[in-house]
Nucleic acid binder design. Structure first.
Lengths: 114, 114
DNA sequence: TTCATGTTTCTAGAATCATCGAAACATAAG
DNA sequence: CTTATGTTTCGATGATTCTAGAAACATGAA
């Protein structure tokens, strides 16, 4: 992940309602939540909600899929992992510092045993 | 870390110059960098730099210490780890999802072998 | 087709943020 | 003391972001 993409992700999460929305979607798991459900859960006006969702979408943190009239949103674990990877790549700067920091193991796809 | 603190950290990092400043400090390691060095490295005007540093300071991402006339800044690995912990706590929602996500092991203080 | 529902785009106003010159403050040296 | 250096605060300006009503768009049902 490039710095500019990380910036978009950080910016997307750095807002009360959007962080809230993202966490709702994370908790909702793979099934995700419809835009209408998100509206109900947050109490946000439609236009405001769409605006925030668009920012999360552009950052790649949320994907969605139309199901008839309903649009189902999902959190993108993949992008979240990319972001965490970016942050920890640059955290520690690869070396173990005296103040205590070792390279991170991040959320990884579940693999079958090697 | 509470949601409001994570929001402050994310907001602090979600800006081009501040992300840049933070990464410079991370790379500088425990010694850190003086405000003047940061000014030289980034080309930012004094008042602008102080403003950005204050936002990073308030979020707890940067700490500093006066050495005579010079103020030496350091990245706070501790707070960075808190933030990553918050994000991964809520990422995955504790369960292993079909789209692949297991709880993260984050930057941790280096311990002697148990 | 017409109607109802779910979502988005348009638009504009309010609030917040970024920038930086000038002045002020803190410390060290002469 | 005075002067020089490093940093912060003040204050104003321009840019960006947040918000939401109204209108438009997309789909499904009758």
């Amino acid at each position: 992940m490039k710095s500019i993409d990380a910036l978009a992700c950080l910016g997307a999460l750095a807002q009360e309602h959007r962080l809230n929305l993202f966490r709702l979607l994370v908790q909702a798991g793979d099934e995700g939540m419809a835009v209408g459900e998100l509206a109900q859960a947050t109490g946000l006006a439609g236009a405001t909600l769409t605006n925030h969702l668009n920012i999360l979408r552009r950052a790649g943190m949320v994907s969605d899929e139309r199901r008839g009239r309903v649009i189902q949103c999902r959190a993108s674990y993949l992008q979240m992992n990319e972001l965490l990877g970016f942050l920890t790549d640059n955290c520690c700067a690869g070396s173990v510092s005296a103040s205590g920091c070792v390279p991170a193991t991040l959320c990884q796809p579940v693999r079958s045993k090697p």
